[in-house]
Amino acid sequence: MQRFHKHRGLVAAMPLANVDTDQIIPARYLHRPREQGFGDVLFADMSFKESIQVGIDDSQGEEVYSNATILVTGENFGCGSSREHAVWALMDAGFQVVIAPSFGDIFFGNALKNGLLAIKVSEKFTEKLFSEAKSQKDLIINVDLPTQIIEFERSKIEFNIDSFWKYALIEGLSETALTMQLENEIRAFEAKHANHAPWLQNLPKGTEE
């Protein structure tokens, strides 16, 4: 996966709660092969000007949004469908960081697996970012993963991240490669499991189509 170390970028603020993955990318685009990209259909059905503030007047929203790399949004971002395309759409559109008070669990896991840094912060902090983004022209912030610090203007806050994900993001670690090294453990588990619950390991063969 893509490595993450430090990032300095323009903020797009979307002060909405419960933005679900159907909003992030509508289902009708999910058939595309990964290499075709999903950036052009990010938030395809959302009324963008109403939803996203990027600091300058809303009429120019789309233009500035195209340069934004850090999305700040409301609680429960990415709830709903498990579609990983939501993460791909954000990344393909240039986003590298998403900051929110909370995330849908599946979206959160999908994001970190792809190298999109999803950061949970307090609602007070997102409110502050929303009002900063509204009042000033272009809000640029720094995100430093090794020190776990978000910095802008004279503000500086520390954020929490699971130690595994921090390591995985910095190293660009592939989880599957990591698991492949545990083949012996998995095999030993399977033997034990087959003994404990044989019906789980040997299931009757169904009819082939």
Binding site: I106, G109, E175, T179
Partner: peptide
């Protein structure tokens, strides 16, 4: 699929996952 929790009605522990996790399970059964 996020509605995989359905299977919990039978007393299973059932998770919905993304495509990367599907690939992981296809490759490692874990």
């Amino acid at each position: 699929d996020s509605h995989t929790a359905t299977h919990g009605a039978l007393g299973a522990l059932a998770f919905g996952v993304g495509q990367s996790e599907v690939m992981h399970v296809l490759a490692t059964q874990s």
